[in-house]
Design a protein around this nucleic acid. Structure first.
Lengths: 244, 244, 244, 244
DNA sequence: AATGAATGAGAGTTCATTCAT
DNA sequence: GATGAATGAACTCTCATTCAT
């Protein structure tokens, strides 16, 4: 995995898969998978997806702390009690939502760039794909910048590539942590600017500028930077999840 | 002014000075500034300072959103009603606190670096002084990183110096905004790492590394970077405000 | 309708009926009126009635402005939060209570007198029934005099009958508004005296005297006044709502 | 006295006179009326008048119950503590204000009509003068209708005249209390209509209509009513107090 | 007398959580 | 599983009153 968030968890596509909220359900009992069980599972998955999708909207609109349970159940069209069948608190929902929202982008990016051998180019391309998403999907950008970055935000892959780049001499940077802080901090700040910037033509291209200055900050060779910035960005196969 | 936040306001040292919460009190134009008035002002200023100082502790401990009025009045040792004589809400108190906490650091930094003619060196020195404070005062660092960076965080001076640096050829950076985002984002992320890092010897020197990578990211000449990093950091004359 | 207050609304006898506080609940158009829904509605209606009945007591005891939320919830035996599930404020509760309390008396009176053709007699009989209620139910009288008369108190039927009476020559009165003010003002003042008067034998008959002077004030013929005052007062079929 | 309110108290014209709020000051001590005492008294009277005049405005604007101490001290331009030097509570201020506002009207009316021997005519003229004030001074009318009528409102003179009128055969009314309720209730209701009616030409003459119907309600002879309504209204010598 | 900062009881309101149906 | 009425702790805010100066 390239962009590999610390807390990986699969979104509830497959009703058989454990999602964070359902992790407590013992699986051993599930010997007799009869019709009712299957129906029940489908309903569960359905409702959970409904809640998470509604939560995305709500968090994107109101931010991290303002939303109250009522906002979620109204947006999801469910009853108060139903909420508690899936999530113990809003913060658990926040975690689930973040995970669901970023995981497959992270996976997609990783899939796209795993073939690139040079860590400098690979890092640059990974960042570009990330910022492209931020540029083109304001709601996603808003959610991630203000919410998902909070607390965790530990992407393993970039740190690893920065380390490899330093070792290989591609990056001139005294300390991998410093480089990582620079890269992550700059991306975040760039995303914050993208949120504030409503005009699409002004957003256009800002992501690449951000990536370029990151590579410069990491001390990459200008020619290599040019090379990384000129590579065509692949269309990511499956469209990734979106907020709206 | 170098580090010049938008809303500069003097802390309530001098009871005659306007502070945000006392701004409505008529001053010089007052016809009869009699004894009672003066006494009253002193008390006001006193209490306001007491509240703000307590608030610093509270915000540093509990963060930006968690604290409730009760936390502040208990910490300040005042009555509920007294709080409302000074601040309409916790967020107003937050603003006042941020302002009070950062304003004189910003002023001090500015005073120190205004004599440096080269915008690259000046920018580097300004950043170093800022990060030095962050390194040496964990509570201040925690407060500022989590609270003051929120929303506003528009320091005019760094942006201006980045612009001047680009114009003079000292910085190689396609867009001043990008450079600004990089510089600010990196400092923030560096401060977040400083907070997480409790061991003093690991904190030691991290601020300078952050500044160094910022200058590299801005495309400064390595010699000039060296020069900026080697200049001795002046002791700022008055010790700046601190959280504890 | 005779005594027809502006905002007629049915009291929540039938859980399916809209009452002010439950007006937002979708009804017939609801697709699936299942068991749970029905049960929920019954509970809602129940609680609402419980609150309103308690509110009557409270308002009657403490007046219009003194009561606080706590009084209502204690009297109704509900939790703080439950109150807000039904009413946003005490004044909304006041409105609901007034409406609930007067509406069916107004309806009953109207039912009784609609058959009387002469507007003079009809007006007299309507007033007599109203004052009879005031005489016999001190709590109701106190509530209505101090609360319901506030602001609105625009009963359409009396005004219409006064107008008809003037047109037909039964009343000698220069201006229907003046007559209306006289009639309403006199009844209110009479009710205030009834409240102050705790001895039942002194209250006895005071309502009829009030009505008599109103008719005299409207310039009705003494014989007709006599006639209106001598007609037996019908027992209103269903006992109307009462405060206690 | 004709219109003689129960609680008569002189307004603070003469600083030597006791007003309700100063009634507790012992007079015995006042043997040595030196300069300072006199100055103090003048200040007292001044401040009290200032408070009461401000209170009139406040009550007229906000009604009987809504105003808080803050409203009064802001309107009067005094300090919090000063308020308590004069009034123990808002309701004491309300009483003082009512008294101050109505007393001299009551006196003036009484002075004007004391020479009229016939109780019917006298009552009619008294009412007319009252309603004339109501017609011409909306603020006064608003204050009196909504505030002063509350609670007390026991005017002795009208009741006495109604009694005398009944005894002399001028009024045909079974019970003086009923007549009194009719007269007072009708005036109040008429005043309420005057408040609601902002157009001066519609207000014009309404007071006399109100008085006319009162006399008719009391059973006065039509000729005598005519006579009472045709007498020219005297200009009351001193202009009475007004709200603005 | 006048001042106005400080007080704290008490009122209003929100909202996460439970639970019978 | 789904429902939504009921709950009450926790929070915000107001305002009459005191008192040192």
């Amino acid at each position: 995995m390239y962009y590999n968030s610390g807390q990986v968890s699969c979104p509830p596509k497959d009703p058989r898969m454990k999602s964070p909220a359902t992790a407590h359900i013992p699986e051993e009992e599930e010997v007799a998978v009869n019709h009712r069980t299957i129906v029940g599972r489908k309903r569960r998955a359905n409702t959970e997806a409904k809640i998470i999708e509604a939560a995305l909207q709500v968090f994107a609109e109101k931010g991290r702390d303002a939303p109250v349970i009522d906002d979620f159940i109204k947006a999801a069209g469910i009853a108060r009690g139903t909420f508690y069948n899936y999530f113990k608190s809003t913060s658990e929902l926040l975690t689930a939502t973040s995970t669901w929202l970023t995981d497959d982008l992270v996976e997609s990016i990783e899939r796209e760039i795993q073939g690139i051998p040079d860590p400098v180019i690979r890092h640059g391309m990974g960042n570009r794909l990330w910022m492209k998403k931020a540029e083109s999907d304001p709601a996603w950008c808003g959610f991630v910048a203000s919410i998902w970055f909070q607390g965790g935000f530990a992407l393993k892959a970039p740190l690893r590539d920065i380390r490899l780049g330093i070792k290989s001499g591609g990056f001139a940077c005294s300390d991998a942590n410093v480089g990582y802080d620079m890269a992550m901090g700059t991306m975040r700040q760039g995303m914050i600017r993208l949120i504030a910037q409503s005009s699409p033509q002004k957003r256009k291209g800002y992501g690449d500028k951000i990536v370029e200055i990151i590579l410069q900050g990491l001390g990459a060779d200008p020619n290599k930077i040019n090379q990384a910035m000129k590579l065509p960005l692949p269309d990511m196969r499956r469209p990734t999840r979106t907020v709206g």
